[in-house]
Design a protein around this nucleic acid. Structure first.
Length: 719
DNA sequence: GAGCACTGC
């Protein structure tokens, strides 16, 4: 601790913070900013008038940094130093330094908008640009004006982003603290490889044969490619002459390695402990190894520039929102290229943690220098804003208007518009864009707005106990899916048939039935394993369900039936009330079956033709036809657009919604901004986009989408 | 018939 670079800057930091309400700290990896900034300000008396809050984008970081700081100060975790994450609050009245996730701080500001208990708020890792941190940045800008005399805000960021954050906060001072990274030599390829997998394999073998000892970290896009490369690497390493080079251990590392499984646990242990002597480890990882997990001992990094990418449907086409250079790859392979220097540097930095290292970039330097953006496209420009918009509206600040909210990077007018329309359709805001009483309650629930709305409707029609389960299951859905490694393939097929089938009504009902069955076993871990369900995921569902139940009980102020296996009424095997509640909650995620086949057309503002995902348990009727109307939880774009998690609904629930769609007036929704919209029926995306733009702020996002569209069309014309 | 990454309340 004593030789952390940041401590040499203590005087300078304290002086700058004393004089300025907002300070940007550029702290490189290993500078000690996350653990030391709070301690410095604590030493210098900043905790006399309030506590120091430090936000982190990830739960593990909040916990581990808090633990470390408590250790350094020699106090018990939860006393002077504590942390707060979802499901876990380890703070007390004595707490001076509190580490928390950015999401928890947002929740706190819902009940206390001035965050009056804090004398200092440090937004750590702001360069990661998580949605929550971006909202906090906007709130902080407002808060420092209101609490200029007794609040200090520190924002830590990466080198390439510091100026921009400073500009956002009226050119506040920027302090740079060097890190403790060792130099990393960057080596470029002459051109992009035709197969990034083969190129990674070849580079890995070259390192193994020619370079001195040190572990190798290889970035891949996903589990499949990781498994392929691991097996190829094993083959090739074995065929090398014995004794000609170091022994090799090859380890996969990705998010769905189940730690509760022996094999997975063993892998994680091996990744984090030092390697045996005369042995080189190859860690083949997803970008989980970029920030979330640190592998010690890595000296060589192989970075192919590829990453898993999310595409969004616009009009009839899919566009990659990462603005990747090879957008057509995204469309055909569902693989994209990252294109920002911060991310490239982050990957390279993984090679220099213990000693000087090397990073092999499998692309030409001209790309890095000329084509890459400085920073990642922030999450706020890539995701649905309905939840954030509802949150901001519920803050109920007289000077707070979502369209005037100051974002570091404003989201596109299109996504703001989408959010407002969705919130209106599910009754969270009225036709004038004002939050309704329903919307207020929805904002209290830690769920996406469509699920909160479903819960409220379910409460009205007596099926809350079921809706709570569905909402909790969908919250954890990805962790719930059985693993899909090849060795378990056959077993899985077998066990799948043991799971309930949703009685033909669809996937939501199946999720409900699965949890109900698990509940009847008294949450038996063995039952999950027998049915190949991720134990971790199911336990998470149980936690979420409990949390949601408590919040609903508090709101309703009565005793609600929230038991997992609640009371059935006679003749309700069709789950009708629950399906209706889902229909109300997912009013903007409806689809109508095509007349002649089982494809669907989404209803709403940007209709498109989609298929039900093959994994769905939705059943066709005796004539082989799927239900006429469904709601869906997700529209995913892989090889084709698919609806994932669908539920059958009835036409007379749908009609009132469609009528409401026709009446939408986005002009009024946006709070009386000077817009004139007439006869827009379902064609709101045709509106001139500028009209909803935030005044004076350039809208990069629009041009980015346009660029992606142009690239796509050019490529299509060529074919 | 297709999977495919990572966070968070």
């Amino acid at each position: 601790m004593a030789n952390l670079p940041i401590l040499q800057f203590e005087e300078q930091i304290v002086e700058t913070v004393d004089r300025n309400p907002v300070v940007v700290i550029i702290g490189e990896t290993g500078s000690g900013k996350s653990t030391q900034l709070s301690q410095i300000l604590h030493r210098r008396g900043y905790t006399k008038s309030g506590i120091i809050g430090v936000t982190q984008p990830r739960r593990v970081a909040a916990v581990s940094v808090a633990r470390r700081v408590a250790q350094e100060l020699g106090v018990h975790l939860g006393d002077e130093v504590g942390y707060a994450i979802r499901f876990e609050d380890r703070t007390s009245e004595r707490t001076h330094i509190k580490y928390l996730t950015d999401g928890v701080l947002l929740r706190e500001s819902l009940s206390n908008p001035e965050l009056s208990q804090y004398s200092v708020i440090i937004l750590d890792e702001a360069h990661e640009r998580s949605l929550n941190t971006d909202i906090l940045l906007g709130l902080m800008k407002r808060l420092v004006r209101m609490r200029a005399s007794n609040l200090k805000v520190l924002i830590t960021s990466a080198t390439l982003d510091g100026e921009k954050v400073s500009n956002f906060f009226s050119n506040c001072p920027i302090l740079s603290v060097p890190g403790k990274l060792y130099p990393v030599e960057i080596l470029y390829s002459n051109e992009r490889p035709t197969s990034y997998l083969e190129a990674s394999l070849k580079t890995a073998l070259d390192i193994h044969i020619r370079e001195p000892e040190g572990d190798v970290l290889i970035f891949m896009t996903g589990q499949d490619d990781i498994e392929k490369l691991v097996s190829k690497l094993e083959d090739r390493v074995q065929s090398l002459q014995e004794g000609s080079c170091l022994d090799a251990i090859i380890l996969p590392l990705h998010g769905s390695l189940p730690p509760e499984m022996q094999a997975g646990f063993f892998i994680l242990v091996r990744v984090f402990s030092p390697p045996p002597p005369n042995c080189r480890r190859f860690i083949v990882a997803t970008n989980i190894a970029e920030t979330s997990l640190t592998v010690d001992g890595v000296v060589y990094v192989i970075d192919s520039e590829y990453l898993f990418v999310v595409a969004i449907p616009i009009d009839d086409f899919l566009y990659c929102l990462n603005d990747c250079a090879g957008c057509t790859y995204c469309l055909s392979l569902n693989i994209g290229l990252y294109n920002c220097r911060v991310q490239a540097n982050q990957r390279a930095g993984r090679a220099g943690r213990t000693r000087p290292g090397k990073c092999y970039r499998l692309y030409p330097s001209i790309l890095y220098n000329d084509d890459f953006l400085d920073v990642t496209v922030p999450e706020i420009q890539r995701s649905s804003l309905a939840g954030s918009v509802l949150y901001l509206k519920s803050l109920d600040l007289s000077d707070m208007d979502i369209l005037k909210f100051e974002f570091l990077d404003p989201p596109s007018s299109e996504s703001l518009e989408d959010a407002l329309k969705q919130l209106y359709l599910i009754d969270a805001i009225d036709e004038n864009g004002l939050i309704t009483s329903i919307g207020r309650v929805m904002a209290e629930l830690p769920l996406e707005p469509s699920l909160s709305r479903t819960l409220m409707e379910a409460n009205e029609c007596g099926c809350l106990f079921q809706a709570l389960t569905v909402a909790a299951m969908l919250s954890a859905e990805t962790t719930l899916l059985p693993g899909r490694s090849k060795s378990t393939e056959k077993k899985r097929k077998h066990t799948h048939s043991d799971l309930p089938d949703g009685s033909g009504w669809g996937d939501h009902i199946q999720l409900l039935q699965i949890f109900e069955e698990w509940d009847r076993t008294n949450y038996d871990i063995g039952w999950c394993k027998d049915h190949n369900l991720q134990v971790r995921g199911m336990l998470f569902v149980k936690d979420v369900r409990k949390q949601l139940s408590q919040i609903m009980q508090k709101i309703a102020k009565g005793s609600l039936d929230v038991r997992a296996n609640g009371r059935w009424k006679e003749g309700e095997q069709d789950y009708r009330n629950l399906r209706k509640a889902l229909c109300i909650g997912f009013a903007n995620q409806l689809a109508e079956r095509m007349v002649h086949h089982n494809g669907y057309r989404t209803l709403g503002f940007k209709p498109q033709v989609v298929q039900v995902h093959p994994s769905s348990v939705l059943k066709p009727d005796d004539e082989g036809k799927l239900p006429e109307y469904v709601v869906y939880h997700e529209l995913i774009a892989t090889s084709r657009p698919y609806l994932r998690n669908v539920c059958a609904v009835e036409i007379h629930w749908v009609m009132p919604i469609l009528n409401k769609v026709k009446k939408i007036n986005v002009n009024k929704l946006s709070g009386g901004t000077d817009l004139t919209v007439e006869g827009t029926e379902g064609k709101l995306s045709d509106l001139p986009k500028k009209e909803l733009n935030i005044a004076g702020v350039p809208d990069d996002h629009e041009s980015r989408i346009q660029a992606a569209r142009d690239r796509f069309l050019a490529r299509k014309a060529k074919k």
